[in-house]
């Protein structure tokens, strides 16, 4: 085991190369709904057993299923109203289980990126061949159901191996959402090819806000607006990224959807906001910012 992930160099938030988003926008704003399938009786992984009751643990299973039957549709309506396309953190098996949801995403020109096969199959202990197989499955499934090239990755249930980032780059995946070290995209050190991290935010994630921070729905609206206001202010100097990761089984509940919709509307009503997707951020950053950030990081580290 390493003491440092060895995935990125240190580059302080001040005196960085300036990011200028398209149209001079201050903030690149993206929403990443986690559209997930949790199996009722998944096989166990020797490294990690999530807390729960003996199978069939129907309460969390059915709570997650609520997201697909009901919540995702309310969440989509809120995003449509604010003109926000989603970048879907997708358990790709959902394409097989619920292609109707995928069709609705494709109709809306949403991006699909991968959150593994199921949220109940973890990367821990996978051999290189197995992890490659999983990534290849995700690429092929997304292509088959949407015609899209898979460009982004959030590890299933946030389970990584030391090889994950190298394997993503080797499969020509452009960005990872698994690093929470920054409010701007950053180069990720990989053996070959290129990979960047895009800010995905644990802090704005509805699971964290609701189930760990124990916030009320209306407080979620407050923290989203406050996060945005600060990043918007800082974006006057250099472009920032704001992400709201969501879970339809949480934010799509009737008592939670309006505060979420109102927060999106608040952001969308601002000028100089680039309402975009993970893929578009990655493409723009790679073309306009990557080299300068890589150079600046190397220079700072060699001081």
């Amino acid at each position: 085991m390493k003491s440092d992930p060895e995935l990125y160099g240190y580059l302080p938030y001040i005196d960085r190369p300036k990011i200028t988003w398209p149209g001079g926008a201050r903030v690149a704003f993206w929403v990443a709904p986690n559209i997930e399938f949790y199996e009722l009786k998944p096989p166990s992984n020797p490294t990690w057993t999530p807390p729960g009751r003996p199978a069939p643990d129907i309460l969390p299973y059915s709570h997650k299923d609520y997201g697909n039957r009901a919540g995702v549709w309310r969440m989509m309506e809120a995003m449509d109203a604010a003109g926000v396309r989603g970048s879907v953190s997708l358990n790709v098996a959902l394409c097989d289980h619920h292609p109707e949801i995928i069709e609705a995403c494709v109709e809306r020109d949403w991006e699909l990126f991968s959150h593994g096969i199921y949220n109940t199959r973890f990367s821990y202990e996978m051999s290189e061949a197995q992890e490659s197989e999983m990534i290849g499955d995700a690429i092929e499934t997304v292509r088959k159901y949407s015609g899209q090239k898979l460009d982004g990755w959030l590890a299933p249930a946030l389970t990584n191996t030391e090889r994950t980032m190298d394997l993503l780059a080797a499969h020509d995946i452009k960005y990872t959402c698994d690093l929470f070290h920054d409010d701007q995209p950053q180069p990720v050190k990989v053996k070959s090819g290129r990979l960047i991290s895009i800010p995905y935010s644990l802090e704005m994630n509805d699971i964290i806000v609701y189930n760990y921070d124990l916030s009320t729905p209306r407080h979620y609206e407050t923290v989203i607006k406050a996060q945005f206001d600060q990043l918007y202010e800082e974006g006057g100097e250099s472009g920032t990224v704001m992400c709201i990761p969501t879970h339809p089984f949480l934010v799509g509940q009737p008592h939670r959807v309006k505060p979420f919709a109102d927060a999106l509307q608040y952001i969308a009503n601002h000028e100089n906001v680039w309402v975009t997707t993970g893929r578009e951020i990655a493409d723009y950053y790679n073309e306009h910012c990557y080299d300068a950030f890589e150079k600046a990081t190397a220079e700072f580290e060699s001081r």
Binding site: L40, N45, D65, R121, M126
Partner: peptide, 12 residues
Amino acid sequence: YLKYPLRRHGMD
């Protein structure tokens, strides 16, 4: 662990 016999349309 990478086989999914219930990966099909509908529920598992």
